[in-house]
C-alpha cells in the first residue's frame, strides 16, 4: 500500500455513516533505525469532515496569518480529527475503485477515539 491509496479517500464509521475524508497521514519516527534516521511508522489518519481539499499545512501549528487565508482554511477544516491507525478497521482493497459501485473507503472501528489533529 502507498500513501495515495489512503489520501482523499472517504471515511466511514463502523455503522457506515460518512465522517469525512482522509486529508493527511501522520507518521512517527520511532521504528528501528533505517540508515541514520529512525524508521517511520504510520501513527494515524487526519480526517476532515467537510472537505477533501488540502489543509495547506495549517493543522501543524497555531499560525493565524496571513489573513484571510488562514481563517478560511481553518473554517473549511473545522472538526478535523486524528484517528489512530489501531482504530482503522478496513482500508481500500486493491480492486476497489475499479468497480464504480465500490468506492474505496476507510472504515473505522466501533468506539474509535477522535484525537485533536493539531500539533
Amino acid at each position: 500500500m502507498i500513501a495515495s491509496d489512503l489520501l482523499d479517500v472517504r471515511v466511514l464509521d463502523a455503522g457506515g455513516t460518512p465522517v469525512g475524508w482522509v486529508v493527511d497521514l501522520r507518521f512517527v519516527l520511532d521504528g528501528p533505525p533505517d540508515g541514520r534516521l529512525a524508521g517511520a511508522r504510520l501513527h494515524g489518519l487526519v480526517v476532515s469532515p467537510r472537505t477533501r481539499s488540502s489543509f495547506l499545512g495549517y493543522e501543524r501549528s497555531r499560525v493565524r496569518h496571513p489573513w484571510p487565508i488562514a481563517p478560511l482554511v481553518r473554517r473549511r477544516h473545522r472538526g478535523t480529527f486524528l484517528a489512530h491507525w489501531e482504530d482503522v478497521a478496513r482500508v481500500p482493497d486493491r480492486d476497489d475503485g475499479t468497480d464504480p459501485e465500490r468506492e474505496p473507503v476507510v472504515v473505522l472501528q466501533v468506539g474509535y477515539t477522535r484525537y485533536t489533529a493539531g500539533l
Binding site: 499545512g57 501549528s61 499560525v63 496569518h65 496571513p66 489573513w67 484571510p68 487565508i69 488562514a70
Partner: peptide, 25 residues
C-alpha cells in the same frame, strides 16, 4: 510565499511581522 513566510517552523524568530503581513494582505 505569504503562507510560508508566516510559518514559524521554517522562519523561527524571522517570521513575518505585523507590518509585512498587513502589506502582504
Amino acid at each position: 510565499i505569504l503562507v510560508v513566510a508566516n510559518d514559524p517552523e521554517y522562519m523561527g524568530e524571522h517570521v513575518n511581522g505585523r507590518v509585512m503581513n498587513f502589506l502582504g494582505t
